[in-house]
Simulated scan of single mutants.
Amino acid sequence: MSENDHKSDLLRYLQDAREALVWKLDGLSEYDVRRPLTGTGTNLLGLLKHLTAVELGYLCDTFGRPHDEPLPDFRDGADPNADMFAAADESRELIVERYRRAWALADATISALPLDTSGTVPWWPAERAAITLHHALVRTLSDTQRHAGHADILREGLDGAVGYRQDNDSLPSHDPAWWEGLRDRLEEIAREAGTGA
């Protein structure tokens, strides 16, 4: 495979996850995209805001690629979790548009630089701050896929909407009775394993 083939392969999986994350917001109220759905406050819109910072940080700042996008402030005294939620004055449209702009900027870096280009992660300790574009891209892809999984679970918990993509949900059945039967079977398996029977 050529370097461009490797880049295309990585970018395809990254783009799939990006689009899945944005799709998970469709049809939800402002309240539902923002509300904390776990004990640590994880929320759908916050995942996009976080990943905007991830893409700009690892795929732009690390390689000296300029951008004008505002990033959360992590100086002393700032909210240490500021990248994980949208402030009241940050609209859904603003967060989504900023995320899409981050994609374009990150993709431009990936297109312009060889995968073995070395960069420096500004917020890492100096002794391990040097990484390649390949490392940064894999790290970004991994983080994005991880958070796409979080979004899947959060969305299913909100309104039962599930699936990989709008045009391909990757589910074996759409019959609620089938899913109820599966859940019952899994409950039985769990109880049996839990009792050692």
Rank of each mutant, 00 (worst) to 15 (best):
G119I: 08
R146F: 07
D76N: 08
A108L: 08
Y13P: 01
E93G: 12
W23V: 04
T42H: 10
E69K: 06
G77R: 06
N4Y: 00
E69A: 10
Q15D: 15
A53G: 14
P122F: 06
D152A: 07
P72V: 08
I153N: 11
R128V: 13
R92F: 08
D9T: 05
A104R: 14
R98C: 04
L21M: 15
A106V: 09
D116V: 00
S91D: 08
Q15S: 14
L10I: 07
G157Y: 06
A86E: 05
H150S: 01
P72D: 09
P125G: 04
W23E: 10
P176Q: 13
T132R: 02
S118L: 12
R18H: 15
T144Q: 03
P80L: 04
A112F: 09
A197D: 14
E30C: 07
D116S: 13
P172G: 07
P125Q: 15
V162W: 03
T40W: 00
L158A: 08
V121M: 14
A87K: 09
A136K: 02
L59K: 02
H147V: 02
L21N: 10
K24I: 00
G46D: 02
A148L: 06
G27P: 05
E180T: 14
L28M: 10
L51H: 03
D61R: 07
Y58L: 15
C60I: 01
A82Y: 04
A151C: 10
P72Q: 09
Y99V: 08
R146C: 06
A177W: 02
E97F: 03
P176I: 15
K49M: 07
N168T: 00
Y13W: 15
M84Y: 09
A161S: 15
E180V: 12
L141Q: 07
T140C: 14
G64F: 01
G27R: 08
A136N: 03
S111W: 05
G149W: 10
A86F: 06
V96T: 13
D175Y: 07
C60V: 00
S142G: 11
L45C: 04
N4C: 05
S118G: 05
A104I: 07
D9H: 13
I131Y: 01
S111C: 08
I189R: 15
E30T: 13
F74Q: 06
L56D: 03
A112I: 11
D5F: 11
G157V: 03
